[in-house]
Design a protein around this nucleic acid. Structure first.
Lengths: 246, 246
DNA sequence: CACACTTCTTCCGCTGAGCAGAAGGAACTT
DNA sequence: AAGTTCCTTCTGCTCAGCGGAAGAAGTGTG
């Protein structure tokens, strides 16, 4: 029968997003109490928010549990970066794959990480850790270095301040990395060797949309020695082609 | 200096969704005032909501305008919109693309329309109007005719009662279309030429889950003449493969 | 069948987060 | 320089939202 004081400093918008964000790839379906726990909200509050979201089809019920609804799916597809970019890039990725038989990757910067949008797995026995939808550090991958080289200053500063070695070949000296990034900007491509995974080398180039770098395109191969020039030329042709269609 | 009365009966959740829903296929990028108008909210309210959504990356700024952000994209992808179907189909779609270099489409019937679930964009020389998440009429597309041929009677009756020509080649005679649909059922595939878009032909086959047609798989090409048989054979192999996994 | 346990739903009075008009800027256009 | 359009900030009022608690409904165990 007691009323209550609301928690100060909370906005409903943040709560709504917290509820939606309770869902992720490993938890695509959740019970009410799980949502409350993951969003760190009281049960009754969660109950009300969820009920309202369901009424707007932002969530849907499956039995006793909830899943993300069609409404969010519809809206999410409008996020322009990925859809347009992936469509424009799709045929070029296949071209590069056909020409090189390497693992081909398309990635964008997401905050301080690399987000992989598309990947064509090559047949070569190269261990590749990237997955579509996964995030990796920017300082240790080919596409990452390209994106980092062209990222805003504050992003670069944060990333350079925390260089964790992934392999013995990872560059962990901020000064050296800065110089490499300057080289990437100057040359127009990046080339890395075993910095993320032993046995995997990569080359990458930026994709430009009207002089803004919006994404990076790269390949992963067992070794760069042989045909580094050819790989980079192929990547650059494709990157220009993609950029032209954005 | 005057305060104000809030509009009663409004929930923040509904407003947040109204703001997000202001974005649609024809308006993927909006200025603040446009969002306010489309969501039917006061400008200052919209401003605050949008700012908060941007801070949570549910929206993003592009110059002076806004677009749907990566956060919503992430969450939206979790919506179980035929997820098993899409998962099962994905590798086969890539196979078909690699074999034909055509635009490949995966679609289901949604009410009286075709809903496109997945699309691999081929070479740009063929104009293709379908987009993932978009809906098109069933009577003028390859995948649509397959789905229409196997749709319940009442759906077919409603669709046949309202045939609007999209191009000069669109079939608008209900009788003729009925005959074509019978052909689709008999032959196991549909082939259309420029009925939706000039310069675009398509072939499509049904995907069966235990003898029920649950989806359609199709390709769009500039012309069907050359290798119609090969295309359809490839589609049928893939469709069987997908069906086997459902 | 009773008991414990977990999960969901409803209730209700208090209060600060949200509201929206207005005014002040900023950027373009005429 | 005057008009137009669009964006941002300020502010006091007030009701939408809050959340503890209690009740209901389902689930598991001896």
């Amino acid at each position: 029968m007691a009323g209550n004081t609301r928690t100060p400093g909370a906005t409903v918008t943040a709560r709504v997003l917290a509820v939606l964000s309770a869902f992720d790839k490993d938890h695509p379906q959740l019970a009410l109490s799980s949502i409350a726990r993951r969003a760190d909200l009281p049960l009754s509050t969660t109950h009300r928010l969820v009920a309202e979201l369901v009424s707007h089809r932002a969530l849907a019920m499956v039995g006793r549990e909830y899943v993300v609804g069609r409404r969010i799916w519809d809206i999410g597809l409008l996020a322009p970066v990925q859809e347009t970019l992936r469509d424009a890039a799709s045929p070029f990725l296949h071209d590069i794959y056909a020409a090189t038989l390497a693992t081909v990757q398309l990635a964008v910067r997401d905050g301080d990480s690399v987000l992989y949008l598309e990947r064509l797995a090559g047949r070569a026995s190269v261990p590749v850790v990237s997955k579509v939808g996964s995030r990796l550090p920017m300082y240790a991958t080919g596409v990452g270095k390209v994106l980092l080289a062209h990222a805003p200053d504050d992003v670069r500063r944060r990333v350079l301040a925390d260089l964790v070695p992934m392999t013995p070949f990872t560059v962990t000296d901020p000064q050296l990395l800065e110089e490499q990034l300057a080289g990437v900007r100057r040359e127009g491509f990046s080339a890395t060797a075993q910095e993320m995974t032993l046995g995997a080398c990569s080359a990458a180039v930026p994709i430009r949309q009207r002089n803004t770098i919006v994404a990076a395109l790269g390949v992963v191969v067992p070794s760069l020695e042989d045909d580094r020039g050819r790989l980079i030329a192929a990547l650059q042709v494709a990157a220009r082609g993609i950029g032209r269609q954005l």
